[in-house]
Write a protein that binds this DNA or RNA. Structure first.
Length: 606
DNA sequence: GTAGGGTTAG
């Protein structure tokens, strides 16, 4: 009777019968405890376990497996360790099932060494043990070893397949996840709901709409469409493929919504640029969590609404939600975009208090923020203290150095990265930073070598940005014909920047012939965009060709093109002060110019 | 009466 109620999720009724049962033994206690665990009521399970001990009923191996599972989900290290103590006291430390759940508990608590010690000492290992051990290797950062264990396991079941597929999908290896899924089905295993959720997740990452729809059809047929995990993944799949209406349809079908599916839907709207709808939905979430806030913040960041990023972040703090590494990395990205150094420094202080400075995402965002704000010393400091660096961290630092005028140091760092981190393969962003650095150092031959090695050595196909860097590098060093030839033969349609790079080289080396051709191209391209004309008129101006300057400006006026005025800004006490090159002067400009004049006269007097 | 696998942000 009790277990029947538990299976239906009717925990209260089952407890009512349990309390009134005069013949309680280990089995009835364990059944009741497990009822709570099955229904996610882990704290209640632990309370019942304590009552069991107080009633002098001896727990057995089954009791412990349930209790350990509950304490793993509670993620309380003190509680976990006291359970371990009890297990040893009652002599179940060699029981396979207990050890299996202990491995998972240790992994949840971040005690990987402990997990390893348990697995090494186990006398007998079953399919559950091997699945837990597989997970342990993923946790240690060794997906390959996990796969090896998976392949060598004496026996596999749908949970072990599901685990391996999920791990591939979660570590950004969606293709491998899909391949494994196919093999699983071929081998005659039937995927369960967890497996469907994982494979939909992988297909969402691949933006494989048709394949996703096929799985969706199948899942509906077998009545799993309303499973909360599966439907959340499906919402994500449709959103990522731009089918936001279908995503919403699915969302509306879910009768018992949890915070995850709300977050999925909010994320869907913001990924599709519909920030107002995202905000509207966010405001309706019955009980938000950190991810909900982070989703909204990331949405505004992605859509370049930095003021909103700060606004929502402040609301998050006011609501009492504690920001995590993800929130901070978004905030620092926003600070970097705005070059808002003062704000960034303030928030940096908060990071230290929360102990998040060693996180790779946070560290990378901080490195980038300081570099983009021109504080290269702080950027270097943060970078050098990062205990773990990924390719994005290296890109931020290499690019930051190059763009702040430390091109040589940037190249030295790139070499260091190649030397000491064989697992990091330079991506297209790093290579474009490297080319940029070579160009600014005047290291043309080295730059050419990197450019020519891109495909052969690094397996990266040069994109239009790389070609622009190459043209810029050749033009800066006066190799103008080569630069022009490069534009003509490049596999991409050259854009304004590419021609402008050539033109400014012509300007520097006074090559009228090529300049004219480059200028013509810019004229042709600049129809809707004034920047080409502006650049052209600047080139004429610096060559002293004032008639041509006037003609260009006149032509721009006739076409109704307006030069986008230059703007710079400084931040004083959390407030941004803008200065425009044309109109829209600062409200205190009289005062500012007065002080500037004062400083100037004092400098002259020295 | 049990253990291992699942969804959202970065």
């Amino acid at each position: 009777m009790i277990s029947g109620f538990l299976r239906c999720g009717r925990v209260k009724e089952s407890l009512w019968y349990f309390e009134r049962n005069p013949f309680q033994n280990v089995v009835s206690w364990t059944a009741a405890i497990n009822g709570f665990v099955q229904n996610g009521l882990d704290l209640d399970a632990m309370k019942l376990f304590r009552r069991m001990l107080e009633s002098d009923v001896m727990p057995n191996d089954v009791t412990f497996t349930s209790v350990v599972r509950a304490s793993a989900r509670l993620c309380d290290s003190g509680l976990g360790m006291s359970i371990v103590g009890l297990i040893v006291k009652f002599g179940f430390e060699h029981n396979t099932s207990v050890c299996n759940s202990l491995i998972t508990l240790s992994l949840r608590l971040g005690e990987i060494d402990f997990a390893q010690r348990i697995s090494n000492r186990m006398e007998k290992k079953d399919v559950v043990s091997w699945t837990a051990i597989l997970d342990m290797h993923v946790e240690m950062g060794n997906l390959k070893e996990a796969r090896r264990i998976f392949e060598d396991m004496p026996e596999r079941n749908e949970v072990s397949w599901s685990a391996m597929i999920a791990r591939y999908s979660q570590s950004g290896n969606a293709e491998e996840a899909v391949e494994l899924f196919h093999r699983m089905v071929q081998d005659g295993y039937y995927p369960n709901r967890s497996c469907f959720a994982s494979i939909i997740n992988a297909l969402a990452n691949l933006k494989a709409l048709q394949a996703g729809k096929n799985i969706h059809g199948h899942v509906s047929q077998v009545g799993l469409e309303k499973d909360i995990f599966i439907s959340s993944s499906l919402i994500d799949l449709y959103s990522r493929c731009g089918e936001i209406k279908d995503a919403r349809l699915l969302f509306d079908l879910i009768s018992e919504k949890n915070v995850v599916c709300w977050n999925s839907m909010v994320s869907g709207y913001s990924q599709n640029g519909q920030l107002e709808k995202a905000k509207e939905l966010f405001d309706k979430i019955p009980k938000t969590n950190t991810v909900s806030w982070n989703t909204l913040i990331a949405g505004y960041l992605e859509n370049e609404q930095c003021d909103k990023v700060f606004e929502v972040f402040n609301q998050m703090l006011l609501s009492g939600e504690v920001p995590n590494k993800s929130s901070f990395s978004s905030i620092f990205c926003a600070c970097a975009t705005m070059a808002s150094l003062e704000k960034g420094k303030n928030i940096h202080g908060k990071i230290l208090k929360l102990g998040l400075q060693y996180d790779v995402f946070v560290g990378t965002a901080l490195t980038d923020m300081y570099a983009k704000s021109g504080d290269i010393m702080s950027s270097k400091k943060v970078f050098s203290r990062m205990p773990e660096k990924n390719e994005i961290s290296w890109t931020a630092m290499i690019q930051g150095l190059a763009e702040n005028g430390f091109a040589e140091e940037s190249l030295i760092l790139f070499e260091e990265m190649e030397r000491n981190n064989s697992s990091l393969i330079p991506n297209e962003l790093i290579l474009s930073a490297v080319l940029f650095a070579c160009s600014h150092c005047g290291l043309v031959d080295r730059g050419l070598w990197y450019f020519n090695s891109m495909e052969k050595v690094y397996g990266v196909k040069p994109n239009s940005r790389h070609y622009t860097c190459l043209v810029d590098m050749l033009a800066r060093s006066g190799r103008l014909s080569e630069a022009e030839k490069c534009i003509e033969t490049m596999p991409w349609k050259p854009d304004c920047n590419t021609w402008a790079a050539l033109l400014s080289g012509c300007n520097k080396y006074k090559d009228d012939r090529i300049a004219k051709r480059a200028a013509m191209k810019l004229w042709e391209m600049a129809d809707e965009n004034s920047s080409g004309y502006v650049m052209l008129s600047n080139v004429y101006a610096s060559a002293g060709r004032w008639v041509d300057v006037l003609n260009t400006r006149k032509f721009m006026k006739e076409k109704g093109l307006k030069k986008i005025s230059g703007c710079s800004w400084v931040e004083v006490r959390n407030q941004i002060h803008n200065f425009y090159s044309q109109d829209g002067n600062h409200s205190q400009s009289d005062e500012i110019y007065g002080i500037l004049e004062l400083i100037r006269s004092e400098m002259l007097a020295v």
